[in-house]
């Protein structure tokens, strides 16, 4: 399943690559990440490309300044650069916020763990350690033995019931660029929702998750 969805998104990536600019793709990734309750797959290639473009543009602006290019032109290039950097920063920061919030859950769920970049994994490990250390130092060590776990309420708990998890049945507002036709919400039984192009819908995240992952639907 994992590799299957990977291929699909790669093909989709290619398709959108010829029709859309990276700035547009980055904007989409940012919007989706901000609106989705859980952490999404890290857009490795897109982030790398955006970084390269930013670097290139920074060098260009430096050259402009040295060569005495018209200051108005330079300031406009700088504005474009600032906008792209804002998107990239905000995208990465939104992910870090999610990692901080759900660090214990992400660390024990390999599917989620694999969605992080190498740097994010490093961050998650440190965050996990620090948070655990802090909880133990400040509270848990002072409690009776059976209440000392940072993931369980007590030794009697059957599973990790103190680990915050993202609410996947939360509703999100989404929009598709294409007509998707009748879409089955979940579990079957219910009448399908007819998803038209460019209309907004409030739907449970859980049921449209595959469409978000394959890039067929955008969160707004």
């Amino acid at each position: 399943m994992e590799s299957g969805s990977g291929e699909a998104s790669a093909a989709d990536d290619y398709e959108s690559l010829i029709s859309t600019t990276d700035a547009e793709l980055l904007k989409r990734a940012w919007r989706n990440e901000k609106a989705a309750p859980e952490i999404l797959k890290f857009e490795l290639n897109l982030v790398q490309r955006s970084r390269q473009q930013i670097q290139l543009m920074e060098e260009m602006v430096d050259d402009f300044n040295k060569n005495g290019v018209d200051p108005l032109t330079v300031s406009l290039y700088q504005m474009d650069l600032d906008r792209t950097m804002f998107l990239l920063r905000s995208y990465l920061r939104t992910r870090l916020q999610k990692i901080e919030k759900y660090v214990f859950h992400i660390n024990k769920t390999s599917e989620l763990w694999n969605r992080l970049s190498k740097q994010e994994q490093k961050f998650a490990n440190r965050c996990d350690g620090d948070l655990k250390h802090h909880l133990e130092q400040s509270v848990l060590s002072k409690l009776p033995d059976q209440y000392q776990s940072h993931v369980r309420q007590s030794a009697a708990s059957e599973d990790d019931d103190m680990v915050p998890e993202p609410q996947l049945d939360t509703y999100v507002v989404c929009r598709s660029k294409r007509h998707l036709g009748a879409f089955q919400l979940d579990d079957g039984g219910e009448e399908p929702v007819n998803i038209e192009a460019d209309d907004l819908y409030a739907l449970p995240y859980k049921s449209i998750k595959p469409l978000v992952e394959s890039g067929q639907i955008d969160l707004v």
Binding site: A23, E24, L72, D80, L81, T84
Partner: peptide, 10 residues
């Protein structure tokens, strides 16, 4: 009068 601007965004 200004030359085309080749931005990251287009």
């Amino acid at each position: 009068r200004m030359d085309p601007l080749n931005f990251i965004s287009g």
